[in-house]
Design a protein around this nucleic acid. Structure first.
Lengths: 212, 212
DNA sequence: AGGAAATTTGACTTTCAAGTCAAAACCGCG
DNA sequence: CGCGGTTTTGACTTGAAAGTCAAATTTCCT
């Protein structure tokens, strides 16, 4: 649907497609660097160099650095929303769903540039902060609900604290900091190890509450 | 022991003590801000303002911003070393020791400014990067050894992956990002929840390995 | 009080990355 | 080819924070 009233429009799609691809290309490079070095520590010259274009080209696609970060974060939240929706389709207990979600999120974090860890919200354009926080909160709320479901269906321990999600997300969000494609661990191995840890803990036997 | 050959030296200690205190005071403010906003996103004017001094005063105590970061990281590693040494004094299984270590590390992360999460090594003066990485690796190695001990003494599951330490540290290192003194959770509650999770996992029953 | 050394700071220079712009290169079409 | 529109870029300006310095202030001793 090209509502543009202007002239020549024999190939109405390709142009837009290329544009979207380029937007994506830049966003991925930026996400990867933002994850690894942080937003402020990453210069747009670096982003440009990583993909072999010049800095002004970035400005042709994004209004400024903050908008680029916003693009990264929106994409991340979109993917998380999708993932959570997909998760609800899973047959099985709430625990199974949590495991699925966690595993896929680890994969996303390891696929460099797929998503950016949403952690530097203050660097966003000020009018975007509120809505983004709202989306983040909503996501957190749905994760907490998933945990409550698990307690209800008996697949999770009944005494789980609300901070459980924070711990899980913390560990997952930390992966981009150390994961390297050429490192010794595959994403699958990482996910396996993490989920096994998540489900069973580290102790050899189930019950042996340690003192302080 | 005042080896200084210069004149007036009736009270040889106080001066130096005050100096050390000020170094510490500045380092704490910086650690706290570096944890919360990241190194590059934190200006020295902010650090100065936080403790009510001027930026040049910081330069009287630290050669430059990188040296200040280095001070933060060295302090962190010193405290971790101490903590690990203390941990070895603990009576009990390797699991008990790991729990103690984790708990105290959470406390340090919650005590604002006590330590700075060592994550922006690249921002250090280049000649300091090597030695600091070496110390970090050494610490990691000793943590892995502690895990091996746990497997040996039967307090830990025998199939724990090497990345277990990374997950634990990831979750712990994430706490400064969300912990607030005036928030709903006390450091003790956080540590309790986290350790219970660490030891037992989230599953209701010990054994129920979930599919992919 | 008086003076020397230590400390602090306002005002400055420097540096580096964000952001702009007008000219160049590219593309699809007759 | 050559012409409009699109995309890209080299060279620039701007702004904010790092870093410096000489003068002002404080400290502490006699």
């Amino acid at each position: 649907m090209p509502p543009s009233p202007s002239a020549q429009s024999t190939s109405p799609f390709k142009r837009e497609d290329v544009r979207v691809q380029k937007l994506d290309y830049i966003r991925r490079a930026a996400s990867d660097l933002f994850n690894k070095k942080g937003f402020d520590a990453t210069s747009l010259d670096e982003v440009a160099e990583k993909i072999g274009i010049s800095k002004p080209s970035i400005y042709y696609y994004y209004k400024n650095k903050s908008e680029l970060l916003l693009g990264c974060y929106i994409r991340t939240l979109d993917l998380c929303d999708d993932l959570l929706a997909e998760t609800h389709q899973i047959e099985g207990s709430a625990l199974d769903k949590i495991c699925h979600f966690t595993r896929q999120l680890i994969f996303l974090n390891c696929a460099q540039g797929a998503i950016a860890v949403v952690s530097e919200i203050d660097a966003l354009p000020s009018e975007a902060i509120g809505p983004l926080r709202a989306r983040s909160r909503d996501l957190t709320k749905r994760l907490k609900r998933l945990i409550a479901d698990g307690v209800a269906d008996g697949s999770l321990r009944p005494d789980l604290s609300d901070v459980t999600t924070l711990f899980i997300m913390g560990a997952v969000n930390w992966t981009p900091r150390w994961y390297r494609e050429d490192g010794p661990m595959t994403p699958t191995a990482i996910a396996d190890a993490y989920i096994s840890f998540l489900v069973q803990g580290v102790a050899a036997e189930a019950d042996q509450s340690p003192g302080r």
